[in-house]
């Protein structure tokens, strides 16, 4: 009875892991395929598609755009989010108002990305603002902010107020308390939120699809539009590079904070 159970359990576990990892493995295998079409099993080993991907300005240009955009959005969204989290946690607001504020600040997580994109497109067009960078930056700050707020708020809620009192009794001014104690203690949480926001921004397609223009595109959208007309393994090469970078990042995050805590909601 229990051996049946454990057999059942093991096959189930294995099947689940295969399901989760298969597409990633498939992408990596196809990316080193020597042939011109994604074939399985691959026709020999070659890194030519990595070369092709890196030589394609559509990918390199958009990758740069995505990186700069994610960095700018994180740089703007993090202070906004941290300030808002402080205001919500420390503002001594009546609980109904506090709940409302929290709901408003976390609403970008609920509103579908495509709706955010369309709404920004329509209103900014009406206002005569058609610059792709401006539109993208506004949209992506919106994406980053709630993640920073969520992690900062959680950290502020579990923050021991006597830490600040201890610093105060030891002679620290309000400013010194903030810069030497409060912010450093919150730093892992803020960093986690910012890192998550960066990844979300970098990976976004749904918000950006309405905000790019003919000369400015992000990497996920460049990949998607390339896929419409081409199916060669250079996409696999780009995707593999994305997977490698993300996994390296995940490993670092796991070492620093623990991935689960980082992803936990």
């Amino acid at each position: 009875m229990s051996t049946y159970f454990s057999l059942f359990r093991r096959t189930g576990t294995a099947a689940l892991f295969v399901f989760l990892l298969a597409p990633l493995v498939a992408v990596i295998i196809v990316s080193v395929n020597a042939g011109a079409t994604p074939k399985f099993p691959p026709e020999g080993f070659s890194l030519r598609w990595y070369g092709a991907a890196l030589a394609n300005p559509a990918f390199t240009g958009s990758a740069l755009t995505s990186l700069v955009l994610a960095a700018v959005a994180t740089a703007l969204g993090t202070p906004l989010g941290v300030a808002a989290a402080f205001g919500i946690a420390r503002g001594k607001l009546p609980s109904s108002l506090r709940g409302l504020l929290e709901a408003i600040f976390l609403s970008p997580l609920i509103v579908p990305g495509i709706v955010i994109g369309v709404a920004l497109l329509v209103t900014l067009s009406t206002a005569g603002l058609r610059d792709a960078w401006l539109r993208l930056t506004l949209g992506h700050v919106l994406l980053v902010m709630p993640y920073v707020i969520r992690t900062s708020l959680a950290a502020l809620q579990s923050f021991d107020p006597s830490l600040e009192e201890a610093a105060h009794t030891l002679g620290a001014s309000r400013r010194q308390i903030l810069t030497r104690v409060t912010l450093p203690v919150l730093r892992p949480a803020i960093f986690a939120g910012a890192a998550f926001g960066f990844i979300i921004s970098f990976d976004d397609a749904a918000v950006s699809i309405f905000l790019i223009d003919s000369s400015t595109s992000t990497l996920p959208l460049a990949i998607m539009s390339y896929m419409q007309y081409n199916f060669d393994p250079s996409i696999a090469a780009v995707s593999s590079m994305l997977i490698a970078i993300t996994l390296a990042g995940a490993l670092v995050i796991e070492r620093v904070f623990g991935l689960k805590k980082f992803l936990g909601n």
Partner: peptide, 18 residues
Amino acid sequence: VLIVLSPLLVSIVARTYG
């Protein structure tokens, strides 16, 4: 946790391509 959860961070476009 690392094996199972890290796909969560991988680009959706890359995963969908997979």
